[in-house]
Design a protein around this nucleic acid. Structure first.
Lengths: 228, 228
DNA sequence: TTAAAAGTATGACAATTATCACATTTTTAA
DNA sequence: TTAAAAATGTGATAATTGTCATACTTTTAA
């Protein structure tokens, strides 16, 4: 996609609020990058010079704990913006962003972002709303992490992954995560995640085929996730 | 405090960015409320008609889990704003706010807030920065909750409470929380929190006197919090 | 193509944490 | 002031989860 005017991605984020001339400006100044699976977009602690608009593919946002383990905090798909928290908050990035598959993103410089924030209240409010919603989600995630068992969290995580990534043609959850990554979402040991996945399989809640996971019993997983 | 112009509280939040006339407007339209210890300012799920500027006292922000337990997500002290996430995000409140002591707060209507957001980019950006910082904190909290043991979380929580509330004349952490509330910050059973506090006391890391907690060995708690 | 490396799976066991029971202390309210 | 209620503290025990060992499978790269 050479220019932003034709790009449908922006319909899904705050860039939809830009005026024609503002859109032309970022279209002319943006730089487009392709990331391969496993590539790091930016790392925790980095000072970002702009934000990324993800135009294809998906990535994980993770944070390193003092025990050396990665905690996956969030997934971002095409259409979403990356790095605005750090740029607007004028802090180093709090999370590391890693591509989960081939991924395309357009970089928009900090200066352009602040210019838009100052001159376009609709843009400003829209992106602010996203941040507020993210905060809501973060608080819910914290509560679940604190109050739910690993088994409950796994059930919720599977439903959550389905919600974010949807299903492929065979009704599998449309994302391929390693067992370790699943464990890093839940906040548990890899072995525990593997063991509980096997249990879910035995209980005929899911089907496993390599990294592919198909949910058989949505109601069942929901019940487990709620603690029953 | 009858008017906002003389109120020092606003120095500590985005209201410092208001123009004189904007300040006069909110000063004339605000309503001031006093909350007693245990009073609920607003509840999870409520539709807020404005935000609160806390001018005295402190409160806890908590979320009910499906298991019936409260998770304390955050503490807010004088000088901070409450409810902006819900108002700006145009969502029901995600958290319940409860006064921890006598507390005073000024209510500013939604209409005033949006008016200021639209016409004053400095205000807008300042409050946005706060939100971004809150997001950063939320991600760190999530990672700690997921990756650290209850013992480690208790150590970190005590240091965190000291940082937020400071010390009283006898060097106790300057907030009185019940054992249950401490457990609800950490995300553990009340008995476990009590047991671990007793352990810390035996290990001469802290001194307990009723609800008062004095930290004796900061380095020791830091070491435990990091997982050593 | 094949050897090495990485990832997945499972058992055995240890450590952590939750739950229940109950005693003691503190707070509350009549 | 005093009885009731709530909060705190501790033991016993069960349940959950982590860790280590090891086998098997899949992926990677020479």
């Amino acid at each position: 996609m050479a220019n932003c005017q034709q790009c449908i991605t922006r319909q899904f984020n705050a860039l939809q609020k830009l005026s024609k001339s503002q859109l032309k400006t970022i279209s002319d100044t943006k730089t487009q990058t392709v990331f391969e699976k496993g590539d790091v977009v930016f790392e925790e602690g980095a000072n970002l010079n702009g934000i990324y608009c993800v135009s294809a593919g998906s990535c994980k946002l993770s944070k390193l704990s003092s025990n050396g383990k990665d905690q996956i905090v969030r997934f971002v798909r095409e259409g979403e913006l990356l790095g605005y928290r750090s740029v607007i908050g004028e802090e180093p990035a709090g999370l590391t962003v890693t591509a989960l598959e081939e991924m395309q993103a357009c970089f928009i410089s900090k200066e352009e972002v602040f210019e838009m924030l100052k001159t376009n209240p609709n843009f400003s409010l829209d992106i602010f709303k996203t941040a507020c919603h993210d905060l809501q989600m973060a608080n819910t995630a914290l509560t679940n992490m604190a109050q739910k068992s690993v088994r409950e969290r796994l059930a919720n995580t599977l439903l959550f992954l389905k919600k974010i990534f949807g299903l492929d043609v065979d009704d599998n959850i449309n994302v391929q995560l390693s067992r370790e990554e699943i464990a890093n979402v839940i906040g548990t040991a890899t072995e525990s995640a593997i063991r509980l996945l096997s249990e879910f399989k035995k209980e005929e809640l899911i089907v496993l085929k390599g990294k592919k996971i198909k949910i058989l019993d949505y109601k069942g997983l929901e019940r487990i996730g709620l603690g029953f």
